[in-house]
Write a protein that binds this DNA or RNA. Structure first.
Lengths: 216, 216
DNA sequence: AATTCAATCGACCAGGGTGGTCTACGCATG
DNA sequence: CATGCGTAGACCACCCTGGTCGATTGAATT
């Protein structure tokens, strides 16, 4: 699946903390500016290493980029997607999914920024293997969102597929709104918790309108 | 309200078509790259004029930027916001608003791209007058969205404010979804019309769940 | 103590892009 | 023929780019 990564193995034998620092700062730099406009000079400055080292570990800017994609995808798979969620109540499932996503974005902002930038802005310059892999992850997540939902909770006078999509859009719209309100402020844990509790009240209303009366 | 724009008046006496071409290409360049990374060389190349002319009309990159903001805001005010919408049915009102927005984005993609980039990425480097003006426009539009809505259409066992926000988020989520699906493809009229009709069906469901039974 | 060797840094390179200037050309009018 | 205006793009000094390479360090080995 993956062609051998052109990385100098000595990179893996340096202190973990240093590896992390280099990877994180590189991912931030790429994530914020896209591949072309990201600067290797900025990366070494941010990571506090000499320029020689970066090109000693990774032969070129592009090799570094590909290594980071590989690393990020593995990490996302392990830390974020490898749970199976079984909550049958669709609205509750969406809540769990959103919660997982936010927790991950807080814990690993560099991964979130990086991989989304790769997919949105630069997906055409990366090896096709990784293109496929990213699309696969997205599809898997989408499927697991709708798998084994208890559809009997929904009221029967509406099209179930409409209901699922409408509720899904509502969640997405709410989250986009939170992001807009959070812009500028740092995404601290506290902030999100606040919005979280706020939205809980809305979920009750959402259930009231989309679910059967006795499903409360 | 606006300090005198530092523009050479000869710009206004050249052919309208040429003015439009220069403004449009400049707005696209700024909109796509942000102020700093936008290139005056690119602008003159795209507009098909010599570099001398650009700096003859506008003394500096920044003066050009400010002129474009002023121009864009006036145009948006005239072509987009100067309607008063009176539809009392909230869901229908949202539909009208969304339709207006899309029509505008199709007709003037350069304005949409430009002004959103100014507000989202560069609002801190523009004269504070324009900062305020943009915020004012957004607030006015937001207010007119909620003004004189017939709240009696909504069912009475839910919090009206919750309902308004939930429906609003649903619309925003849907539109974000359409944008995602449209990425890459050109935003041709046809595409939008298709999605538009599709969403009409969803609106019926939305009314069924949020409105009183007899309000159909 | 001498030698080896890998890790590390940052000065340096050629190339290209930056915002902005200025000269020179073409063309209409006097 | 002369003047002057609109125009183009060569040119400027500067800065940043991805990438190289010689110099310095310091620990390990002999």
């Amino acid at each position: 699946m993956k062609g051998r990564l052109k990385m100098n193995e000595s990179f893996l034998s340096i202190a973990q903390e240093k590896q992390d620092r280099i990877r994180n700062e590189a991912m931030f730099e790429f994530g914020e500016n896209g591949y072309e406009k990201a600067s290797t000079n900025q990366i070494v400055k941010r990571a506090g290493i000499g320029k020689g080292m970066l090109f000693h570990y990774f032969n070129s800017k592009y090799d570094l980029y590909v290594y980071l994609i590989d690393f990020a995808l593995k990490k996302i798979q392990d830390d974020y997607l490898n749970f199976s969620r079984t909550e049958p109540d669709f609205i509750e499932r969406l809540k769990v999914f959103a919660s997982d996503k936010w927790r991950f974005m807080q814990r690993h902002p560099e991964l979130a920024t990086f991989i989304s930038s790769v997919f949105v802005n630069d997906s055409d310059i990366i090896p096709s293997d990784y293109q496929k892999q990213i699309k696969l992850l997205i599809n898997q997540r989408m499927e697991s969102l709708f798998a084994e939902i208890d559809l009997s909770l929904f009221r029967e006078d509406i099209d179930i597929n409409h209901a699922l999509k409408l509720v899904h859009w509502t969640f997405d719209g709410y989250q986009a709104d939170v992001i807009k309100r959070l812009k500028g402020k740092s995404m601290v844990h506290e902030s999100w918790e606040t919005y979280w509790e706020e939205f809980d009240h809305y979920l009750i209303t959402l259930k009231t309108v989309f679910y059967k009366e006795d499903a409360q």
